[in-house]
Amino acid sequence: MLQFNNVSKRYTGGKDALRNINFELGRGEMAFLTGHSGAGKSTLLKLIALLERPTQGQVLLDNQNISRIAKRHIPFARRKIGMIFQDHRLLHDRTVYDNVSLPLIVAGFRHQDISRRVRAALDKVGLLGKEQRYPISLSGGEQQRVGIARAIVSKPPMLLADEPTGNLDPRLSEEIMGLFEQFNQVGVTVLIASHDISLINRLGYRTLVLSGGQLPQEHDYHG
């Protein structure tokens, strides 16, 4: 599903953010990405989300080399990924329904389909009945679940989460991770960047550890 071949990223100014990264994530696989601040986690996620382009190497998403695609194709490549952020990135002047429906509107779905899919997505994250609420009136955990509903509403083959539990207490974090596991069980590829080593260890999935822009070791808790 996702493949990095000798990927390096150097920002203008000479700093090497990533050096010679190689890894592959199979279809339907779930993995964690961890490492200290400044280890290159954000850069790696940005390369997948096409917010940055690699200086060297190839990033393959769904067998497509996304590191070299034309600008006008970027939006369509992004639609294959559902993204979840630490700060939720919700639009606060819009209802939960409008926030979650955004990817569908962007892709040009019809009203009936949008309504059905938004309800299904909200149901999955346990927020059915809160469609007309505004994000500000929801708790942090609920806001994050709105963010997750938005990421899965268009049923992308891959989910990408950047510190999704960063602001949540352990119990809520566990709930959120439980959601990711559910999506993974129905075939979605999931990559989660996280600091929460104890949670990662407890869950026991494959873990990519970035250090100084490199990927020297890989822990496979699956055994």
Binding site: P75, R89, L91, L102, P103, A107, S154
Partner: peptide, 16 residues
């Protein structure tokens, strides 16, 4: 600005 950023992230085209 936020709206534009989020819309881009969920795959909006320039035209959209």
């Amino acid at each position: 600005r936020d709206e534009i950023d989020v819309t881009r992230l969920v795959g909006a085209t320039r035209a959209f």
